[in-house]
């Protein structure tokens, strides 16, 4: 499945691992869960005039490494991650070329995306707005406030992708604030809802490119936190931990094999 995308995914995941190891930084699990989503957006959906906001700003490495693959940021810039004078903050920063908005506090990205979509809609401009939100972020009231507004104003140029990895900072979402029935909630709010395997690039791209009318679109992308590395998958420890040398090598070997 998705063989033709393997090289890009392998490169991005390899860089995420190496940089997390080097910088001893966190949020590797959250970064690994959205790689395929970002590839689908950046390589197969987003045109130059479109906008992208990563509302789950803590998955910054996934975006920085994607921007590197798109040749938007240089290798030097990428490798500066974790050093003292870097612009590549642990939560995405608009001071980095290609990053359109700084985020990091949850629940901010969707209102901003709605503001942008509103402008394009009233001006009858064709630009689309893509925004990736996390499932933990659904605890935030602003996410639902923004959703109500977007539905009321029929913002069909708004594409929300939910990284539904079902784990948030302190554990499984269903044990913290159970979000179910998730799909029905979005239906009830008046969104166009599409559920896909969040690691299947062709399915995500297809969902992104579906033409939508009079409603914002939300794609529930079912993902696995730490996707691609057996000992990181679905393990909340990797929300915080960076790999040691042995773990890095083990992980790199797995990535090489899985995305050969």
């Amino acid at each position: 499945m998705n063989k033709r995308y393997n090289k890009i995914i392998k490169n991005i995941k390899t860089n995420i691992l190496k940089l997390t190891y080097k910088a001893k930084s966190s949020h590797i699990g959250s970064s690994l869960s959205i790689v395929e989503i970002l590839v689908a957006i950046y390589f197969y959906s987003k045109k130059k005039m479109d906008r992208f906001i990563l509302s789950k700003g803590h998955a910054s490495l996934a975006l920085y490494c994607t921007l590197f693959e798109k040749k938007i940021i240089s290798l030097n810039t990428l490798n500066s991650y974790g050093t003292n004078k870097t612009k590549l903050m642990g939560h995405v920063s608009h001071k980095v070329k290609g990053v359109e908005f700084s985020t990091g506090s949850l629940g901010h990205g969707l209102p901003i995306a709605v503001g942008k979509a509103l402008k394009f809609k009233i001006k009858k401009e064709k630009n689309k707005v893509f925004v990736v939100i996390s499932d933990g972020e659904l605890n935030e009231g602003t996410t639902w406030e923004a959703l109500m507004f977007a539905v009321h104003h029929k913002l069909d140029n708004l594409n929300i992708i939910l990284d539904n990895n079902r784990i948030q900072s302190m554990g499984y979402s269903k044990e913290i604030i159970d979000l179910n029935p998730l799909k029905r909630k979005f239906f009830a709010f008046g969104c166009r809802v599409i559920e896909v395997n969040g690691h299947d690039i062709s399915k995500i791209s297809k969902a992104l490119n579906i033409k939508n009318k009079n409603k914002p679109k939300i794609i529930i992308a079912n993902t696995i936190k730490g996707r691609g590395i057996s000992f990181m998958e679905n393990n909340n420890l990797w929300h915080y931990k960076s790999p040691n040398f042995n773990e890095l090598n083990l992980a790199l070997r797995e990535i090489k094999k899985k995305y050969a």
Partner: peptide
């Protein structure tokens, strides 16, 4: 067309204002 009532949601309103203003408004 240049007037919006966000409803009773100040945080959302301020976020949207940021988004709208980031598009040269």
């Amino acid at each position: 067309k240049r007037f919006f009532n966000s409803g009773v949601s100040e945080q959302n309103m301020m976020g949207m204002a940021a988004g709208l203003s980031s598009e040269k408004n």
